[in-house]
Amino acid sequence: MSDETFTRLVDQHYPTLYRFALSLARNQADACDLTQQTFYIWATHGHGLRDLAKAKTWLFTTLYREFLRGRRRGARVTSIEELPPGAEELADVEIDQARRLDGGLVLAALGGVEEIFRAPLTLFYLEGHSYQEIAAILEVPIGTVMSRLARGKAQLRGALTAAAPGAQVVPFPGAERRKSP
């Protein structure tokens, strides 16, 4: 691969790879390391990929694998089955309020989502990866991705509600009715 092609690949993907890494690692230094390591692996191995159209998936998959590899062994990963009953039901968050939140607060809220849901959720919001692409990147079944997206959104909304300073979250119309006995 020529220098020019490699530079184009970096320019095309490094910001979103960095954001994905940041959501996983939750600190800038580790996110930078993960992003660099991903491109280093590309420079040493990935150039053998024949179909450059698959480079994006390759890069995200590699970054995620590197994150998992570097994570401390024995770290607890919450399985879907461990979620409390009803957690799949989204808490309502007023959209305008979410819109007013600082990007850092949104990132912090995303960081509060459990990792197993955070990875697909970040990919969903970054460049709008389709659920099929997310399944390919994370190497999990499509149904699992759908389930994790639903539960991840629920956790994110809860975290955003908590993150909003002096939050007066106005529920979506209908939310009160659902909560009433």
């Binding site: 691969m1 490699f6 970096v10 490094y14 954001r19 992003t35 420079a43 939140l101 990132l107 970054l126």
Partner: peptide, 28 residues
């Protein structure tokens, strides 16, 4: 809203240069 918020997060200014420098240190 979430998509827009995340897209607004900018990588560190020197990250791109570090990636390219690292790759040049390990040519294809």
């Amino acid at each position: 809203v979430m998509t827009e918020k995340l897209a607004a997060i900018a990588p560190p200014a020197d990250l791109r240069a570090a990636i390219l420098a690292g790759a040049r240190a390990t040519p294809a």
